[in-house]
C-alpha cells in the first residue's frame, strides 16, 4: 500500500518537510512507482541516499561525531554491564531470601529465571543506551540529525576490523585471550549484524530529536 503520509514522514527525517512532500508527490505522479513495492523501494532508497549524502558531504564534522558516538557507546556499555551485574546481585539477594540455598552463588549454575532476567535487563539497558546516544548525536548535528548515526556505526565496525587486520588476527590481550575473539565474539558476521541492528535504535533516537526540532520550527 502506498501510504503517502508515512512516506513523507520517513523522508522528512532526512530533508525539509517541503522537499519531502514534493518528492512524495513526484513518486505518486510517476507511473514508474505505481506499485507499492516500487513506491516503498524508491522512498527508502531516496531516504538512504539523502542520509548518505549528508554524511559524505561533511566528512570532518561527521568523523568527529563518530568518534564521540563510539566513545559514548563504550562508556554506556560499561554502565550497562554494571547495571546488569546489579540486577544479578539484587535478584540473587531477593531469591536467596525467598528460597535460601547455594544455587544463588554467582556463576552459570544460577537459576534460569535469574539468568533470563539478567539477559533481558542487559538487552533493555543496551537499547536505551543506544537510543540515548542517537539523541545526543542528533542534538549535536542540527539539520543533519540522522547522519552521525551512520558515521558512528561505520566507525564502530571499522575500529575492531582494523585492529584485527593490523594484528594479523593473532594478537592477544595480556590474559592470553585473542583480541578478535574479544571484539567479535564467535562470529564476525553476527557482530556486524548486531551493529547494524543497533544502528536502527540509534536512528530511532536521532529521529525523535529530528521530529522535535521540526515541530518546534513550525
Amino acid at each position: 500500500m502506498r501510504n503517502a503520509r508515512l512516506a513523507e514522514w520517513v523522508l522528512s527525517l532526512v530533508t525539509t518537510p517541503e522537499r519531502a512532500s514534493a518528492t512524495v508527490g513526484d513518486l505518486l505522479e510517476d507511473p514508474l512507482h505505481a506499485g507499492a513495492l516500487r513506491f516503498w523501494a524508491a522512498v527508502l532508497f531516496a531516504a538512504f541516499s539523502l542520509l548518505w549524502r549528508d554524511m559524505a558531504a561533511n566528512p570532518k564534522p561527521m568523523a568527529k561525531l563518530a568518534v564521540y558516538g563510539v566513545f559514548l557507546q563504550l562508556l554506556l556499555s560499561f554502565v550497562t554491564s554494571a547495571a546488569v551485574v546489579l540486577v544479578y546481585i539484587v535478584g540473587a539477594f531477593v531469591g536467596s531470601a525467598i528460597d535460601p540455598g547455594p544455587q544463588w552463588k554467582w556463576g552459570p549454575g544460577m537459576p534460569l529465571g535469574l539468568l533470563t532476567l539478567g539477559a533481558i535487563a542487559g538487552w533493555a539497558f543496551g537499547l536505551v543506551a543506544q537510543f540515548q546516544v542517537g539523541r545526543v548525536l542528533a542534538k549535536r548535528s542540527p539539520d543533519r540529525e540522522l547522519a552521525p548515526c551512520i558515521a558512528t556505526t561505520l566507525l564502530a565496525i571499522a575500529i575492531p576490523l582494523l585492529i584485527v587486520v593490523l594484528s594479523g588476527g593473532r594478537a592477544t590481550f595480556p590474559t592470553g585471550q585473542l583480541i578478535h575473539e574479544a571484539l567479535y565474539g564467535p562470529s564476525i558476521v553476527l557482530s556486524v549484524l548486531s551493529q547494524v541492528a543497533a544502528l536502527f535504535v540509534l536512528l530511532a533516537g536521532a529521529a525523535r530529536v529530528r521530529r522535535q526540532q521540526l515541530s518546534m520550527s513550525r
Binding site: 524508491a42 532508497f45 531516496a46 531516504a47 538512504f48 539523502l50 549524502r53
Partner: peptide
C-alpha cells in the same frame, strides 16, 4: 532510468 534517490541527491547537490 535514474533512481529517485540518485536523482534527488544530485538535484540537492
Amino acid at each position: 532510468r535514474p533512481t529517485a534517490g540518485h536523482l534527488y541527491t544530485t538535484l540537492d547537490r
